[in-house]
Design a protein around this nucleic acid. Sequence first.
DNA 1: CTGTTAGCGCATTCAA
DNA 2: TTGAATGCGCTAACAG
Lengths: 341, 341
Amino acid sequence: MAVRLQDVAKQAGVSVKTVSNVVTGHVHVAPATRERVQAAIDILGYRPNLSARNLRHGRSGLIALALPELDSPYFAELARFVVQAAEEHGLTVLIDQTDGLADRERLVMAGFRSHLIDGLIMSPVGLGPTEIAEHDGHIPLVLLGEKVGAGSADHIAIDNVAAAREATEHLLALGRRRVGVVGNQADSPAGSGVARLRRQGYEQALQWRGIAADPTLIADVPTFGRKQGADATARLLDSGARPDALFCFNDILALGALRMLAERGLRVPSDVAVIGMDDIEDGRWSTPTLSTIVPDKVEIARCAVEMLLNRMGITGAMPSPARDVRAGFALVARESTFGRT
Amino acid sequence: MAVRLQDVAKQAGVSVKTVSNVVTGHVHVAPATRERVQAAIDILGYRPNLSARNLRHGRSGLIALALPELDSPYFAELARFVVQAAEEHGLTVLIDQTDGLADRERLVMAGFRSHLIDGLIMSPVGLGPTEIAEHDGHIPLVLLGEKVGAGSADHIAIDNVAAAREATEHLLALGRRRVGVVGNQADSPAGSGVARLRRQGYEQALQWRGIAADPTLIADVPTFGRKQGADATARLLDSGARPDALFCFNDILALGALRMLAERGLRVPSDVAVIGMDDIEDGRWSTPTLSTIVPDKVEIARCAVEMLLNRMGITGAMPSPARDVRAGFALVARESTFGRT
DNA sequence: CTGTTAGCGCATTCAA
DNA sequence: TTGAATGCGCTAACAG
């Protein structure tokens, strides 16, 4: 059934090695021989067995990308760029959807895909810093998102505190004084990381302006989704806190907020200005368009892949210290903070 | 460096076979032995080499999902469900992003990942039916989206013609008579498939009502994106065609259309009703919310994986005829056709 | 430039 | 129930 190198060799009347040379193209082969071999390959429909090659070679060219959700726009866009960057280096990406569950993240990190993947890029949500620090480095690991405690893993993300501060400051600079927060997460084990950092940035911005933080302006969410954004906004509106602006911890929360504000007949930005984070495609086409913090996703993806590649090269030897890279970001003001209504 | 079965065996003072038995759990092993082996595994940090196992076993448990884009909401959502369904069967999904390019689709189908993936689920855009029919069946293949000519591949999709007809009929039933189309594609090689089918459905609906098709109401797009939807809508508006409704061939086109209508000060649905297809999450939270055709994505994903599994089981023998499954769909009327403004 | 051979790590015969 | 040998398909030494 399966056509092997050997079969091709017999067909072409050459040795296995020669066929191998033709297939890989690593060594010079006489043109005439090459042609003969190629003909045999075509006739037999030979396809190299990558499993065998991987076994021999010791690496697979596969890397795993572990994300909470593939259908969250931010992660989908990130995944796109990671796949692209990986491809440029001849790597194939295999997706692990963790749903933000600690168990699945643990499983992925433990290497249940051992020796099949050469490296792992992961955006942890459920796992705490301590657990991540336990990573034994059996496989190169690059972490995305929340900065986690030291360990053998590299890390890349934007400066969440600074970005959140800038977003908040943007609202304050517009003259808003009752800036609500949509997306806070109490110190729950899950997902608290990013929310905590963004909350910090928010508070720093207020502090720098000498504005007292008002806890009634903070709305918590269980997860980051449009519905959660809408719900949290409704709560904020109903509570009598009277926000004149909303800093949403990401864009889909903000999209939900926009929706709820529209339902309540509030105008954006005149009644309530709104800003998010992530710069997902939707926000550029919503009505009103969404002001946001734009992380450099391409840089994040490229850098993640490159750091992985780096560690993959250093085969166990000389474990260079874990790198921690800050990706660039920028604020984009669109209609939800600068519009006319 | 690498810990092998053999190393564990030596450590535990047993044979390789015994360790293998413990690891796979296929055969009964004396409890005492098992414990000893397990201890050795833990001490040495043994992880099975899946490449070797795959080579031996002849299959990898990997399937590829080839999509045009990962960051298009519809495909991202679909990918999510495919990954989920695959996981339920112990399969891992590896993503190929084709960007709708014929070359890359060809490459994927040709099996450049030969013997590494056990099956392929693909949503072809760039490849024509003839080229797809040439698939030699060296790997189980399931096609998504446009129905392509017969071949060795299974296929699942909604009935695009019927769905488009229903969407159009919905607008007509609302009393609209100048229903514009956003998303037509002239007979370009790329992507024409789905657009052609949806156009057919649109025309059938008009015909059934005895309404003459007006070519000035048809707007073409190069690709399906928010920007393209906005642009096409602008053209329609500027052309003097005066549509009182828009049937957008998918939801992101529709989102772009909504945006453009808002910019032009037109109210939806009172001035112009809008409907899309795909039921992406965004459409449920836009303002106005988007009426759409809801394809059963879970069914599509599950069925695709199951058909693949089926073919993977039939190892070359008895090539049962290619199946062609119609997934269910439903129309959901939201504010963009039923709203008050 | 080409042929021969040995193993990558595992599962699976056959024996014991 | 466990042990010893064989080969999955390929590549990298080492000849020739």
